[in-house]
Amino acid sequence: MNGDQRATPIVKVEGLRISYLRGGNAVTAVKEASLAIRPGEAVGLVGESGSGKSTLARSLLGLNPQSRSQIDAGSIVIAGTDVTRYGPSQWEKIRGRPVAMIFQDPLTYLNPVMRIGRQIAESVRRHDRGADVRARVAELLRLVKLPEAIARAYPHELSGGMRQRVLIAIALGCRPKLLIADEPTTALDVTTQAEIMALLAELRERLGMAMLLISHDLGLVGSACSRIYVMYAGYVIENGSNGDVFIRPAHPYTKGLLLSAEVKRNADGRFVTIGGDVPNPATIVEGCPFRPRCPVAMDECGTMPAFTPIPNRAAHEVRCWYVERHPVIQAEEIHAAS
């Protein structure tokens, strides 16, 4: 599950800031986000809806419309090339490979009047010049465990799980090194959810592909990813290994999130979620956006802290004044204070 930490990252984002332009005034969706994904690793990006995680993910493919959004600061580097200032035509040349993407609602993300086979073939023709398109489409369908006859079907004739497999096949047709999965199972029922996650894990293993899994579902991310990024109101506020973030979370938000979601490991080491809802993010505030809801807020929180590495842990960082002032803290402490 662990990627090579010394290899060049496929994607490296630093201090990214993205805002949307809505009728004259700008709304900043991503305020300051940094992340790196190395070949072969499975990375999770956790956050509530509105935390900016989808905007961040789409920026890795240049899918945020340039007429309505812009990158204000920071950089995106893909496979060693800085793509921060790429225009639409430049993006067209690099989309799909090395980074491809699948989406939340597989019905609306498929063209309703085009046969499945053609939609996959488009991806093959674009990225495999000179390949035997039919054979490659059949191969992709086998890879996502769909019968070949599906190629002649239209999207509305398939079930939700099958449609998501089609989206995966389209993405794999690009032969990506990194697959971004944006809430890939949210629209599916529980059984199908498990099947799709198992398929993604298997494909990643088989094709040696990295994955960025974006979800609000802690259990899902916890069971599929080795490294976790936590986003809150446009900021990446904590990142570290699966074990560090989920068992020994440092940021008060992450702790609250885990406590309120009551995430525990059961006997076989898998994560189980037991209901519970995280309250909506507070409105925009100066400094740390979590301050109004934070049980341990201090005077310093009026400005946003930089990332602090947590002592004695490999690559576990957090943006929190409280943690910086009290390097060794226990989850119970904050819980008690709240």
Binding site: E92, R95, G96, T108, Y109, L110, P112, E122, R126, A171
Partner: peptide, 15 residues
């Protein structure tokens, strides 16, 4: 504004 346009762009097709 349909989602499948995003899919088509994401697989690298030109506008």
């Amino acid at each position: 504004s349909e989602d499948f346009i995003t899919t088509a762009l994401a697989k690298g097709m030109s506008r």
